Lab assay of single mutants.
Amino acid sequence: VSVELPAPSSWKKLFYPNKVGSVKKTEVVFVAPTGEEISNRKQLEQYLKSHPGNPAIAEFDWTTSG
Rank of each mutant, 00 (worst) to 15 (best):
1 V>P: 14
2 S>V: 15
2 S>I: 14
3 V>H: 09
3 V>F: 11
4 E>Y: 08
4 E>M: 10
4 E>K: 07
4 E>Q: 09
4 E>T: 08
7 A>H: 04
7 A>Q: 04
8 P>E: 04
9 S>F: 12
9 S>C: 15
9 S>H: 14
10 S>F: 12
10 S>Q: 14
10 S>N: 15
11 W>Y: 01
11 W>S: 01
11 W>N: 01
12 K>F: 05
12 K>Y: 06
13 K>Y: 03
13 K>A: 03
13 K>I: 04
13 K>V: 04
14 L>P: 01
15 F>D: 02
15 F>V: 14
15 F>Y: 14
15 F>P: 02
15 F>H: 07
16 Y>F: 13
16 Y>H: 06
16 Y>I: 09
17 P>C: 15
18 N>R: 10
18 N>F: 13
19 K>T: 10
19 K>C: 13
19 K>W: 12
19 K>F: 11
19 K>M: 12
20 V>Q: 11
20 V>S: 10
21 G>K: 06
21 G>Y: 03
21 G>W: 03
22 S>T: 11
22 S>V: 09
22 S>K: 08
22 S>C: 10
23 V>W: 10
23 V>G: 15
24 K>D: 15
24 K>P: 15
24 K>M: 15
26 T>D: 14
26 T>L: 11
26 T>Q: 13
27 E>M: 15
27 E>N: 14
27 E>R: 15
28 V>F: 05
29 V>T: 07
30 F>V: 00
30 F>C: 01
30 F>S: 00
30 F>K: 00
32 A>Y: 00
32 A>E: 00
32 A>I: 01
33 P>S: 03
33 P>L: 02
35 G>N: 03
36 E>Q: 06
37 E>L: 15
38 I>K: 00
38 I>M: 05
39 S>R: 15
39 S>E: 09
39 S>W: 15
39 S>D: 08
40 N>W: 03
40 N>P: 00
41 R>Y: 14
41 R>W: 10
41 R>I: 13
42 K>N: 11
43 Q>V: 08
44 L>I: 02
44 L>N: 00
44 L>Y: 02
44 L>M: 06
45 E>L: 12
45 E>F: 11
45 E>T: 09
46 Q>K: 11
46 Q>I: 12
47 Y>R: 00
47 Y>M: 00
47 Y>P: 00
47 Y>I: 01
47 Y>K: 00
48 L>T: 01
48 L>M: 03
48 L>P: 00
48 L>C: 02
48 L>V: 03
49 K>N: 13
49 K>W: 10
50 S>N: 11
50 S>Y: 08
51 H>A: 03
51 H>S: 03
53 G>R: 04
54 N>I: 02
54 N>F: 03
56 A>S: 13
56 A>Q: 10
56 A>D: 15
56 A>N: 14
58 A>E: 15
58 A>Q: 13
58 A>K: 09
58 A>Y: 13
59 E>G: 04
59 E>Q: 08
60 F>K: 03
61 D>C: 06
62 W>P: 01
62 W>Q: 01
62 W>M: 02
63 T>M: 07
65 S>H: 11
65 S>K: 11
65 S>M: 11
